[in-house]
């Protein structure tokens, strides 16, 4: 039972991040290498707010907003200047951001582990089907589901979503229809960054907050989008579930091998379905 709960919470976390990556890729054609760094920043800012205000909930609210703002700034000052070049340059820029964000984090928060206590509301484990489950994990699942649903509604049902989808599908045409594509790009990058920070903030009470956390999550995220097919939300959901569950099972049964399980899944996928488990087309991103 606890495997299922841990696996689901991991899966939702991965999905939030992968959805942000996918969203940014769809609109800007950029794979955001700094996505993990933004996730890490979300966790650190959450920690900072918790130390200052004592409330995790304020942290969970503030961190995504700050990081989204930072994302908008990154897009406006740097990324915007290289859209007309080869995609490699955009990748290079987001890689440069990792170095700067990591260093700033080091300057501000130092090298020690930081910890965010589990919010009081979810401090007690609950009994579910006969086993004791940390209730915060349940919150993560519910929260992840709520954010995913909100994201879906935003993209699929709102006027905003239509604008974003139109601009992603054909920027020139959208521009001609009077949509300010460059503002949409900024907004989408900010949204993606915010999603990464939500992931970071919600994870903060679960893990020690440290510099390396951004990189380890981005590897898992990349594996999710490789397996699921980038730009394929259904694939991202299934791949997140696959990896989240496999890792949770790994923690329980084969701790030594956890790190390698994900890679094994990646290799397995590539051997048998080189284009990704859930994609129909070949990939030329």
């Amino acid at each position: 039972m606890s495997i299922l709960i841990i696996g689901l919470s991991l899966s939702f976390l991965l999905f939030l991040l992968a959805a942000g990556l996918t969203l940014i890729f769809g609109m800007l054609g950029v794979i955001n290498f700094a996505h993990g760094a933004l996730y890490m920043l979300g966790a650190y800012i959450c920690y900072q707010v918790v130390t200052m205000t004592g409330s995790f909930w304020i942290g969970l609210l503030v961190a995504p907003l700050v990081v989204a703002l930072l994302g908008a700034l990154m897009e406006m000052t740097a990324l915007r200047r290289v859209y007309d070049r080869d995609h490699i340059y955009q990748l290079l820029l987001t890689f440069g951001f990792i170095l700067v964000i990591d260093e700033l984090t080091k300057v501000i928060w130092g090298l020690d582990y930081k910890q965010v206590p589990t919010p009081a509301l979810f401090a007690q484990p609950v009994e579910l089907f006969g086993s004791m489950i940390p209730s915060y994990r349940l919150f993560v699942i519910g929260f992840g589901a709520a954010v995913s649903l909100a994201l879906f509604l935003l993209l699929d049902r709102s006027k905003w979503g239509i604008v974003i989808r139109a601009a992603s599908a054909d920027a020139d045409m959208a521009q001609a229809l009077g949509i300010d594509v460059s503002r949409v790009r900024t907004a989408v990058f900010a949204l993606g960054a915010g999603l990464a920070a939500i992931g970071g903030a919600v994870t903060a009470p679960l893990v020690p907050i440290e510099l390396g956390m951004g990189f380890s999550i981005i590897i898992d995220c990349f594996i999710v989008v490789i397996i699921g097919g980038l730009g394929n939300i259904r694939g991202a959901i299934l791949a997140s579930l696959l990896i989240g569950m496999a890792r949770a099972a790994g923690y329980t049964y084969a701790t030594e091998w956890v790190e390698l399980i994900t890679f094994a899944l990646l290799i397995g996928t590539l051997m048998f379905r080189p284009a990704g488990l859930f994609s129909v087309k070949g990939r030329t991103a």
Binding site: I31, H87, L91, F222, L230, F263, T284
Partner: peptide
């Protein structure tokens, strides 16, 4: 063997993941 099967940005992601392994 794995990496040249995909092109463009996926090559970057995949080489990163494999090297991390």
């Amino acid at each position: 063997i794995f990496a040249v099967r995909v092109s463009g940005l996926f090559f970057s992601l995949l080489t990163l993941a494999l090297a991390q392994m």
